[in-house]
Design a protein around this nucleic acid. Sequence first.
DNA 1: CACGTTACGGTTGAG
DNA 2: CCCTCAACCGTAACG
Length: 196
Amino acid sequence: MSTVAGQGRVNQLGGVFINGRPLPNHIRLKIVEMAAAGIRPCVISRQLRVSHGCVSKILNRYQETGSIRPGVIGGSKPRVATVEVEARIEQLKKEEPQIFSWEIRDRLIKLDIGHVNFEKNVALQEGICDKNSAPSVSSISRLLRGGRKEDPERKNHSIDGILVSEMKNRDRINQIDLTNKTERHDMGRTKKTRTR
DNA sequence: CACGTTACGGTTGAG
DNA sequence: CCCTCAACCGTAACG
């Protein structure tokens, strides 16, 4: 194990942390275990050398989600471009090869006015897309530039799976029996040697 | 004093 | 391949 140590810093309490990164799982677990044992947050903070703000946040999150894990970092929201919209983008480009991406976007927005788009409405209701509901210019140009590497069929089920599992977790809040459950959900964090 | 909240400087990753 | 940018991070400090 590389144990690359990363950029470790030391906080006011003498605890080690990596700026911008979540606290390691074992500490998060410890925080929740101690709280479950009736230990006050301020004591947990001092003993584990984790800022009280962080203890507060983790405990709070655990109460409302039942999960020890940090939130999902990075990435971007699901594409707002539906298959319909994508088709339209490609069509516009074919009809007028010299057209600029921003013009396509512009037209997309106009075309959508007064035209009820079911897929779009669903996306809006689910907060997947904003009031503009038009793909970004960069997204359009990338698509046109041959970026076509996205799997054709959406795989929402995986997301659903995650949400469902978190919901189940939530049900366990009532009976905190961490003493023998040892919550081991360390999903393999395959370090992919970033070169950033 | 305990602790909820948030500005800040930071990282991540899908698009 | 590189860039963008919104989502998240923990600390420090305020109230």
